[in-house]
Design a protein around this nucleic acid. Sequence first.
DNA 1: TCAACTATCTATAAACA
DNA 2: TTGTTTATAGATAGTTG
Lengths: 188, 188
Amino acid sequence: MVRHTTGRRKQEMKKMTNEKNLQVTFSKRKNNIFKKASELSILCDVEIVIIVFSPANKAFAFGNPSVESVLNRYLSENPPPMSGTLQLAEAYRRSNVRNLNSELTQVVNELEAEKKRAEDLRKMRLASQAECWWEKPIEEQSVEELQRFKRALENLRENIAQEAQALEFQSSPQFGTKNDEFDAGFGI
Amino acid sequence: MVRHTTGRRKQEMKKMTNEKNLQVTFSKRKNNIFKKASELSILCDVEIVIIVFSPANKAFAFGNPSVESVLNRYLSENPPPMSGTLQLAEAYRRSNVRNLNSELTQVVNELEAEKKRAEDLRKMRLASQAECWWEKPIEEQSVEELQRFKRALENLRENIAQEAQALEFQSSPQFGTKNDEFDAGFGI
DNA sequence: TCAACTATCTATAAACA
DNA sequence: TTGTTTATAGATAGTTG
C-alpha cells in the first residue's frame, strides 16, 4: 500500500506560526477537550464547564449538566475576593434587583479600598522617591481592576436595561413607556 | 520479560462502579484535560477556563491567563438571562428605571475617565522611570477623583434605597418583600 | 472549507509500589 | 495520594481528495 502521509509529528510547545494550521489545530483540539470533558463527567459523574475563545475571539463553551449551572455553582462557592473591585461574576451571581442595593454598597466599599490603595501608594512613593520601578506592576494592576470594575458596572446597567425592556413588553398600557428612552446613553 | 499488567482496556461510557478506580481516574483525567487546555492555550494563543467538581464536590479550576479573567470576559460578552419573575417585574414597574440607567451611565463615564487617567499615569511613568517626584500631585488628585466617584455611587445607592423603600409601602401582599433585604449593608 | 487517512504520538486502565 | 510500568486505546499533524 502506498504511504499517503508522513504521520503525526511532535509539536513544539509554542504558538503555531502557520495561521491555517493553527485554525485547524484549534478546532480539533477544542473538540477533543470537550469530548474528554464529556467523558470525565460521565465516567465520574461530576460537573464540569469549559469556556474557550477561538483565535477569532469567538466564545465556545461546554458544560455538564450546563454551562450556567456549573458557573453558578462555582461562583456561589468561590465568590471572588473582595480585596479587588466588584467582579462581574459577582454581579452575575446576584443579578437580581433586590440586591442592587447591597451590590452598590459593596461597590462603594471596594472603591473605598481602591482609594486607600492609591493613598498607600502615594505614601510609599514619598517614603522611597528614589526607587520607582516596582510601582509599574501596581499601576497596571490598577488599570486592570478598574477595567473589571467598569465591566461590572456596565453589566449592572445592562441588567437594568434588560429588565426595563422586559417591562416594556409586559407592562399594561397605563404603565407604558418607550424603549428608546431606555436605550439612550448606552454608547460607551 | 514478565508481563505485569493487562494493559489498557476499553472503558464503557457510563459511571464507574468501583469507587476507588473512579477516584483515580478522575484525578488522572482531570490533570490531562488541564494539560490539554494548557497546550491549546499555548499552541493557539487563546484564552480558556475549566472548572470541574470532584466526586467529593471539591472545585478544581484551570484558566489561562487566569480563571477570573476568562470568566469575566465570557460573562461580559454572554450576559446570562435574568431570572425574571412576576415579582421582579412588579418591583421594576414601580421603580424609576430610567433614572437608574442614566445615573449608571454617568458613573461608568466617570470610571472610564479614571481608567484613562491611570493608564496615562502608567505611560508617563514608563517614559520617565528615573524621575518620580512630579507624580505626587497626580496621585493626590487621584484620591480626590476617587472620592468624587465614591460620592456619585453613594448618591446612586441612596436613590435606589429610596425607590426600594417606596416599593415596600406600595407593594401588595402577594408581592410581599422584606425590608431587611433592603436595609442590609448600609453601614459605610 | 471540510472530511478522511495514517503513521506516529499521547493517554490511560489496571496492577503495583 | 501520587508515581511507575505495560499493553492498548485514543488523539493528532500533515497530507490528500
